[in-house]
Design a binder for these strands. Structure first.
Length: 254
DNA sequence: ATGTCGCCTCATAGGCGA
């Protein structure tokens, strides 16, 4: 079972990129983030052989899941704050797995309300991760975590020192998630490997110089970790014309 | 501070979020 995750930075602007990616990689499941559209193009993906579910809002955020097999939606909001209306969370059951798609808050600038929202969101997410361990359902959470976990996950730590994605508080929370027993699938299969990024700024030829960061992740529950055969970053979509600033990460389960 | 995208609107330029 091949699962991909991609922050597309507008599903409308990236529809042809998406078609090329699906045709080339043919994933069984695709998690998408930053749809930036209230209406999701269900029919477009149906014509390509995919079921889909989406949680959307106007202009910002938005997450969707495509799958070749049926998708059962189990939750569309991150519990813990009734006032939170951001479209950032989608929990499903697909082929016996709990598959969760997240678009965690960016949180810039640090020391802002947006940064406090990011930290509170991460705390609420911890509670869900803890719950999920109890029922034994093999669980995979993919998406844009908006956290640079370690120094080797960016080209130059000094360049990100003042960015919300690299602050001690969110990085500490990410480590707390791993301490619960979840595995960062990419890092566990590529220990110590440098220069492996999923996002590059649009400006200053960041992609051409590989000045990027690794912020799109797959976390897997303990029962699923031994079944991860490979986890790779596909740089091709980022190299195309008019790309998203993120590129897909892919994972294969036995 | 800046760079570049994509979205939206008291819209064709500017603000917001990333």
């Amino acid at each position: 079972m091949k699962i991909a995750s991609w922050n597309v930075n507008s599903v409308r602007a990236r529809i042809e990129h998406l078609k090329r990616f699906l045709d080339r990689q043919s994933p069984d499941v695709l998690l998408m983030q930053e749809l930036k559209a209230e209406v999701f193009p269900t029919e477009t993906f149906q014509a390509l052989g995919y079921n889909s579910v989406a949680v959307t809002q106007k202009a910002y955020n938005g997450v969707a899941i495509l799958a070749r097999t049926p998708i059962e939606v189990t939750c569309t909001t991150l519990p813990g704050d009734d006032q939170d209306s951001h479209a950032r969370f989608l929990e499903t059951r697909i082929a016996g797995l709990r598959i969760v798609n997240i678009y965690a808050p960016n949180g810039n600038p640090p020391a802002s309300d947006k940064f406090l929202y990011k930290l509170a969101w991460m705390d609420r997410f911890y509670v869900e991760l803890h719950h999920w361990l109890a029922d034994g359902i093999p669980t995979l959470i993919g998406g844009d975590y908006n956290v640079i976990p370690e120094d080797i996950d960016c080209h130059k730590p000094a360049s990100w020192a003042r960015d919300a994605l690299f602050q001690p508080e969110p990085r500490s929370r990410y480590r707390d998630w791993l301490a619960l027993g979840y595995t960062d699938a990419f890092r566990s299969l590529h220990p110590g490997e440098t220069g492996q990024f999923t996002y590059w700024d649009y400006f200053r030829l960041a992609f051409e110089h590989n000045r990027g960061i690794r912020i799109d992740h797959f976390l897997v529950s303990p029962s699923l970790a031994p079944r991860v055969r490979f986890c790779e970053i596909d740089r091709t979509p980022r190299s195309e014309q008019k790309p998203s600033d993120h590129t897909p990460i892919l994972l294969e389960l036995d």
